[in-house]
Simulated assay, not measured.
Amino acid sequence: MSTLEIIVVSIAGYLIGSISFAVILSKRQGVDIFTQGSGNPGATNVKRILGAKWGNTVFALDAFKGLVAAGWPVLILGEIRLAVIGLIAAIIGHSFSVFLKFRGGKGVATTMGGLLAIMPLSLLIGLLVWVVAFYLTKFVALASILFAFSLPISALNLYGSADPRFTLSLMLCILIFFRHRSNVRRLLQGKENSFKK
């Protein structure tokens, strides 16, 4: 793993992550996603404002960003550590996009796409946690936070504490929780939006 490879993977990952499909698709529908709903340019807010079709499309495209950013270093360079760097860069790009004046989404879908490339079993466990939490509570934010907490627990058991994927999972857990801190406040205040009928 050379310095040049690290730089290339980091820049590519950040730029890939910085593409905001929530903003692009919302604008095509005549909506400024920053002024609607929660104001967050992510799949959940798009789904709430424009419906399931567009929300699910944004989620899939955001996940694809993570898959590409983490997948190509493994396929071309054969280096799991570079894949980890690429995914982290993509999540940072998604959350603090250079194209959006360093604003962005919360990175959950991008995280899931990247994990599919480098630690699919941990992703599967996390998705099960997410689905159960959402089914029971109908709060996307709470399900996403619990998904984040599941990652280091599963990675520790699957890969061990010395593996870079465990370090990645800890960083992702902290980042996702940080990006959801406003949701945590609203949950505690009973003001968080849900998908309950």
Rank of each mutant, 00 (worst) to 15 (best):
T44N: 05
K196V: 14
P120T: 01
H180S: 09
F21S: 01
P152Q: 10
A89F: 08
A63W: 00
S154N: 13
H180P: 09
G42W: 06
T110K: 01
R48M: 13
L168E: 01
A141T: 06
K27V: 08
F59T: 03
L50S: 05
F195S: 09
L168M: 10
S144G: 01
A69S: 13
L4P: 07
A117N: 08
G190R: 11
A162K: 14
A143F: 02
G107A: 07
V58S: 02
E5I: 08
Q189H: 09
F96K: 10
F59M: 15
G71D: 05
L82F: 05
Y159C: 00
K101T: 11
G107Q: 02
E5F: 13
A162H: 14
V132E: 07
I16E: 01
L75E: 11
L77Y: 14
L187G: 09
S20T: 14
L123T: 04
A133M: 12
L82Q: 03
V140T: 12
L25Q: 04
N157H: 12
L187Q: 08
I16L: 15
A148Y: 00
R181Q: 11
F59D: 03
E192V: 11
I33W: 12
R185I: 14
F34S: 13
N56C: 14
P164F: 03
V68E: 00
V132G: 00
F99C: 03
I24D: 07
L116H: 07
A133N: 08
I125L: 08
K196E: 15
L175W: 15
M119Y: 00
F178E: 06
V184R: 10
R81W: 04
L4C: 01
S150T: 05
E5T: 12
F102L: 11
L77I: 06
G42E: 01
I80L: 15
F139W: 11
L67W: 04
T44Q: 00
F147L: 15
F99T: 02
I153F: 12
P120M: 09
I7H: 09
S122N: 14
N157M: 15
S97P: 06
N40D: 01
V23A: 04
K197C: 09
R81N: 14
G86T: 00
S20Y: 09
D163K: 01
Y135D: 13
K101L: 11
K101N: 15
N40M: 10
A12V: 11
L77T: 09
I92M: 12
S150E: 10
F134G: 06
K106I: 05
L187D: 03
L61T: 01
S10T: 15
